[in-house]
């Protein structure tokens, strides 16, 4: 994977109650590019944060459907990744990521 791709894979941290809970179990949640694969995400996290990644789980979030006077519409969705770090590694400054 080339250097440019590394910066395009991770879109930002995903901070929610669930993500905060996950962080206590060494899992960190990111929004990622919709065409990112697990191995790409793993390499990107290892390259950007310098931490060893154990495994990655990904899923596609669907946008909510919204109705208005103009009819029905859908918000854009995104791809989310749960990154489990290898035992003993932590991401300190998680909120500050990209």
């Amino acid at each position: 994977m080339n250097q440019e791709r590394v910066f395009k894979v991770l879109l930002g941290p995903h901070m929610t109650e669930k993500a905060a809970f996950a962080a206590e179990h060494n899992q960190y949640v990111f929004k990622v590019a919709s065409d990112a694969t697990k191995p790409e995400i793993k390499k990107a996290v290892e390259a950007l944060f310098g931490k060893k990644v154990d495994r990655v789980q990904v899923l596609n979030m669907k946008g909510k459907t919204k109705r208005s006077a103009r009819g029905e519409g859908r918000r854009s969705g995104y791809r989310k990744a749960y990154v489990t770090l290898a035992a003993g590694e932590t991401l300190e400054d998680f909120t500050g990521a990209e």
């Binding site: 995903h14 901070m15 929610t16 109650e17 993500a19 905060a20 809970f21």
Partner: peptide, 8 residues
Amino acid sequence: GFRPGKVP
């Protein structure tokens, strides 16, 4: 991403 008062 957090309900009010539920931020850890």
